[in-house]
């Protein structure tokens, strides 16, 4: 497969922070709001550079969603930041009424998503957020895979008119995508062409998938690897054409099976080109405290589980 090099571990939340700062420099309408997690969500550089365009909301996420919707009316592009659970499930009705249904140009920026939040435990490890957000009509849902891609996604969000949910994480993970790669919302990225099976991965699972593909190739299995950073709108053409070519699909994500990328892919393929599918995701469980690496392994979210899922999917062809 094409060689992918880890240019050094970095957290995706810092990619978001860098992208937000860049978006702020490029566009004076970009403003930011945070609910007492400015450092954790990496909005501090923006707040320092643009103090008049940064608004502290305190621990009041519902109010932050509403204030952002109000700010957007005059043409501002508000980015709101908190932990993923607190800007989705906690404020679902607010996001639904004044962002999604009202079509306001709010960018919901969700850090510490998934189980890799780690030691804080299940209260903070939301794995339902992709499902919650993708159910809202008109909501764009993005889950980038590394620092560079998250930075690019944060910049691209300002260029999309309408609600965006941008999900990223806390741990330092390999930074391997090209820092100059063009980020196009809704466009899948082909990481490796193959013929036996398609692996579709998003977020932190993309690097795990890269490792899995390298290992599988040594066993003579040809894997097509697709990085989906935009779960909604899904790049249907990329998914359907790859499924037609390989005849088996594995989806990998740091989320519950319910509501995740895998379900979106399954729904699409059920209607167009059904093939055997396997899901590398969490099956109807809450997380728990532990290191990110421990939890990824224990909850079946690593390259080893992708390898097993690939073999199972191929055996069902």
């Amino acid at each position: 497969m094409k060689e992918y090099t880890n240019k050094g571990n970095k957290d995706t939340r810092s990619g978001f922070g860098a992208g937000l700062l860049e978006a702020g420099k490029m566009n004076p309408d970009v403003v930011a709001l945070c609910a007492d997690l400015t450092g954790s969500v990496k909005m501090d550089a923006f707040a320092a550079e643009f103090p008049d365009r940064f608004f502290q909301c305190g621990i009041a996420e519902a109010d932050m969603v509403g204030a952002a919707a109000g700010l957007s009316l005059s043409g501002k592009i508000p980015y709101i930041g908190s932990f993923a659970g607190f800007v989705t499930g906690r404020v679902y009705d607010q996001v639904r009424q004044v962002v999604a249904y009202s079509g306001t140009n709010v960018k919901i920026c969700a850090s510490h998503a998934g189980i890799t939040l780690g030691e804080d435990g299940a209260t903070h490890q939301i794995m339902e957020d992709i499902g919650l957000m993708k159910m809202l009509p008109g909501m764009v849902v993005i889950n980038p895979c590394d620092y560079n891609q998250t930075k690019a996604a944060a910049i691209a969000a300002a260029g999309h008119v309408g609600p965006v949910y941008l999900r990223f994480g806390r741990p330092s993970v390999p930074n391997f995508t090209d820092e100059n790669a063009r980020f196009e919302i809704g466009k899948a990225i082909m990481l490796n062409e193959g013929t036996d099976v398609t692996v579709i991965a998003t977020g932190h699972l993309v690097w795990e998938a890269v490792q899995a593909v390298q290992s599988l190739e040594k066993e003579g299995i040809s894997v097509e690897l697709i990085n989906i950073h935009t779960i909604k709108p899904l790049d249907s053409d990329a998914v359907i054409s790859s499924a037609r070519k390989t005849g088996a699909v594995v989806c990998a994500e740091e989320h519950l099976i319910a509501g995740g990328l895998g379900e979106s892919v399954a729904s699409l393929l059920a209607r167009t080109n059904p093939v055997p599918m396997e899901f590398v995701a969490v099956d109807d469980k809450f997380g728990q405290s532990g290191t990110p690496a421990e939890l990824m392994k224990a909850y079946g979210l690593d390259s080893e589980h992708i390898i097993n899922a690939v073999k199972k999917a191929i055996s069902r062809k």
Binding site: F55, A62, D63, M64, V65, G66, A67, A68, A69, G70, L71, S72, L73, S74, G75, K76, P78, Q94, Q97, V98
Partner: peptide, 14 residues
């Protein structure tokens, strides 16, 4: 319960 927040945001925009 949501309109006061939205109005506050609009006032910030102004």
């Amino acid at each position: 319960g949501q309109g006061l927040s939205v109005a506050a945001g609009a006032a910030l925009g102004k």
